[in-house]
Design a protein around this nucleic acid. Structure first.
Lengths: 147, 147
DNA sequence: TTAAGTGCAAAAACTTTGCATATTT
DNA sequence: AAATATGCAAAGTTTTTGCACTTAA
């Protein structure tokens, strides 16, 4: 099934770097896999959702895991208007979404764009970088906040 | 001259909202105007650069001013890989630049793109938002960090 | 076995806020 | 004069880290 397949991929990737699969990492990975499209979580969110599971899990471990999985390209770190970072599964197929954010009320609209993805790939390739993620953030005022 | 023209624009904009021009705001505005293209500052950076000026200036005031000027569309708040926010003057002509960031060593390359700007405008208009800023951030691995 | 991972508690880094005083308009 | 802005110091948030203990491979 899909879930265990993804967990295997994570495990393989970890082992390639001499790192280990743990119940905590597995739990966090599974949480993000089950997350509805478009939803993203902060470290604290992750903690609240998993603290009552059978596996013990601390905030420090969550921070460490979120960083690790972002560096591995498994999660994407969203840079929105909020005061803390949010994470979501990084789409393997390049179907990444972008954000239109009202800076007054923080209302956020998501959208997809093939063109942005293509620009990102072109720019990365032009500098010989290998792309992990690209995201457009548009800061604006929503109709209500324009008065 | 250019500088005082910009200061006048700031003053007018402030007065429109019942707010006031102060020596501190003027100082901060001038600093950003004189900043070389492509350079951006954190609140702490601003403090370090201005603390020895004749005008007294505190970190709180800097934070308050940076927020205010971002909400006014005068500054843009950059969302990069760093752990704190950076600011720079928001280009009035739409010549905004974007960032390609190596997530391993944080090496950053800036680039401009008319297409991105156009996409931003189209998306904002589509939802009847009024655009203030748009920025593409590409997370990637630079050649050196790919091993 | 042994290097990596975890939890805890403490610290660090960054940002916000209350309040008295000072300043713009 | 009235309302806004500032500085200070204290508090708030979010994130990081040291260390002893645990665990995956």
């Amino acid at each position: 099934m899909e879930n265990s397949h993804q967990l295997n991929r994570l495990q393989t990737a970890l082992h390639h770097q001499g790192l280990r699969m743990t119940p905590q990492r597995s739990l966090i990975m599974t949480l993000f896999q089950q997350l509805p499209k478009g939803e993203h979580l902060s470290a604290e969110d992750v903690y609240q959702r998993l603290v009552n599971e059978q596996t013990p899990l601390s905030l420090s471990t969550i921070y460490r895991t979120l960083h690790l999985m972002s560096k591995m390209g498994i999660l994407r770190e969203l840079e929105l208007a909020e005061d803390h970072r949010h994470y979501e599964l990084n789409a393997l197929d390049g179907k990444r979404h972008h954000h239109l954010v009202c800076i007054a009320c923080t209302k956020t609209i998501e959208f997809e764009s093939n063109s942005i993805q293509k620009i990102g790939e072109k720019v990365a390739k032009g500098s010989e970088f290998s792309l992990l993620d690209c995201q457009l953030v548009i800061h604006a005022l929503c109709p209500a906040c324009q008065r």
